[in-house]
Design a protein around this nucleic acid. Structure first.
Lengths: 368, 368
DNA sequence: GTGAAAGCGCTAACAC
DNA sequence: GTGTTAGCGCTTTCAC
């Protein structure tokens, strides 16, 4: 018992404004409206004008779901990060989003909390949303998941992943340079006992930073007792804990290199709680150079790795692989790191040092 | 020159796996597949099992665009914030996202950089994505935009907006309580000259915090010269600048209340640069209690406003209005603030207690 | 250059 | 209970 032919526009008083409404108002076909909105060339400028007028008069907002459905492109990028609570990532996200929006893309964010298994869920969610590309900025990913991702034919960029992977683009961080500079800086200041607080076990970036540290220590010719390396987790709490361990050693380091700034901030806090003056009694170096690093007291000496630079690189890579028909073609970019010297590092205090408590009275320091 | 009837499934070797593929594999209809996926009751469990098996065997991922298009619900919430670079917001986002994901929703983030005009763009983008609701967490919005939003019939929550708006839900922050506690705390310590660094002019939250400060000062009976109020912008830079202005006054304040923690961190930095000891020579109080506040040196005394609490409240409000048919029914929640005393505040210098060096005056400090 | 019409992948009536 | 089918709002051939 249909009342009107489907062809006949229904005459309801209030109707959702869709592309047809606009077409009617502008007295053109829906195809033309579509063309105008998508800036397809060869549209009569008079029609085009009428269409735009109708659009703004009606306050028409195109339905992206529908556009995406038919065009196959969602104009959505996913970015997966480790921990939105670590200021490094918001800085990265900000850069990513600005770059993405400039290219007409929206950004979907997923956070794994440093739990690689949670990545599975994030990826699934992004795949369901049919993102046009995803940037995995977690500084590590598990092999099986990588395989699964490979089967989806969408562009992806990774940070810190083993290269030579089939068709995945990667952004490689040159940890060595910055970390070498950091260790060298400390060595030049006279430090001989340098500790290290790493990131969470198993995360590629954590391993890579530790390796860079070890090799810097080695090539400078310093000793590195096992006890000078503490496994942290990239958080202030981890840094706090790590510093406590390191500083209460019988023969504590005179300087600590931290895997990231949050760790360093936690370490500063603990050092101070233990009554140690920074940098006079303990030198501290961070990694990342997040915005607040230079506002710490004392301002934090740190290895700079620009989240913004990484982000921009990621978006560009994604955009490029979108344009590129050759799926297998992967790019490989390198982001450098470099030391930024501020005031959390100085020459180590000589043998006259006395820790406020009777923790380490046997502190003969000096070059052995 | 069509080759095959549209009805006939094409026999291509590689075919995108869609709901039909699954249906064929499970030997059921697409409707059944849909029902199974959506947990519609009254589906035969044998069929259901076959369907799930087919889904996982094929690695089928439903297309959310299509689901959204037909169902009218995108399962997407938008959240608009001011500045992702201020740690308060990531904390809020984290809470929001967790709560949203738990309810099966994805989160779209927009950042305005404290520029209310940029909000227009954010809102537009969200509307295009057909979000099911938006949380405007920018602590302020312009009237005309509000009107425009009203015409879209989607649920919205605001922070800090004038209540009594047609059908919009709001989360109200009780600034007064926390800020009064802060000022009182300072007054009890003996401070008589207390300065204030506000947020950006025109932002509701900035005004509200300033008003709360003024009224606290007034009710405690202290004087407040105009020059003791400095207009900041919620950033470390703003705090830095503000502190410089205030501290270089002929008769500088002995304590400064900052509109947020980032401002306080900037102020700490400047105070230290000017050679002032915190808290002995200048007491500083922040607002928000972001994660790193307690890791500052000295740990920052601040007024706590839980981003997570706000976020959860926002998601729940959104979910509620989604369920609720009555569009006009709006909820109104209140989030409290309270002082957290740490070590950036103490008796002003000049009071007789001779604290020669840095010394911890723990009273009700929350140090572990 | 413009319009008509065929779907994109899915859900929700409606029929059985 | 399960299957059939009509669209959701748009883009994109394909005619004209």
């Amino acid at each position: 018992m249909k009342k009107a032919s489907a062809k006949q526009p229904r005459n309801r008083v209030e109707r959702r404004i869709d592309i047809r409404t606009v077409a009617e108002a502008a007295k053109v076909s829906v195809a033309t409206v579509s063309r105008v909105m998508n800036n397809v060339p060869n549209v009569d400028s008079a029609l085009s004008k009428r269409v735009w007028e109708a659009i703004s008069k009606l306050g028409y907002i195109p339905n992206n779901q529908a556009r995406a459905l038919v065009s196959g492109r969602s104009r959505l990028f996913g970015v997966i990060i480790s921990d939105i609570t670590n200021p490094f990532f918001p800085e990265l996200i900000q850069g990513f989003e600005e770059e993405a929006v400039a290219a007409g893309y929206e950004t979907l964010i997923g956070s794994t909390n440093y739990d690689l298994r949670r990545m599975e869920v994030c990826v699934q969610r992004m795949l369901e949303r049919k993102v046009d590309g995803v940037a995995v900025m977690t500084f590590g990913i598990e092999e099986p998941l990588l395989e699964r991702l490979a089967s989806q034919k969408i562009p992806m960029v990774f940070i810190d992943i083993a290269p030579a992977k089939k068709g995945f683009s990667a952004i490689h961080i040159d940890y060595d340079n910055g970390i070498y500079e950091a260790v060298q800086h400390l060595a030049v200041l006279g430090h001989r006992r340098i500790g290290f607080i790493s990131g969470p076990k198993g995360l590629h970036s954590a391993l890579a930073r530790e390796k860079a540290f070890r090799s810097a220590i080695g090539s400078i010719g310093l000793a590195l007792p096992d006890e000078y390396i503490h496994v942290g987790n990239y958080t202030t709490e981890g840094g706090s804990e790590g510093a406590e361990r390191l500083l209460l050693l019988r023969k504590p380091p005179t300087a600590i290199v931290c895997s990231n700034d949050m760790t360093a901030i936690g370490a500063m806090h603990t050092a101070s709680r233990l009554g140690l003056k920074i940098p006079e009694e303990i030198s501290l170096i961070g990694f990342d150079d997040i915005g607040i690093a230079r506002f710490m007291l004392p301002p934090l000496t740190t290895v700079r790795m620009s989240g913004r630079e990484i982000a921009i690189s990621a978006v560009r890579t994604l955009m490029a692989s979108l344009k590129n028909d050759d799926v297998e073609k992967a790019t490989y970019e390198v982001v450098k790191t470099r030391l930024v010297v501020r005031q959390s590092t100085s020459i180590p205090k000589g043998s006259l040092t006395g820790l406020s408590r009777r923790k380490t009275q046997n502190k003969n320091t000096e070059d052995e």
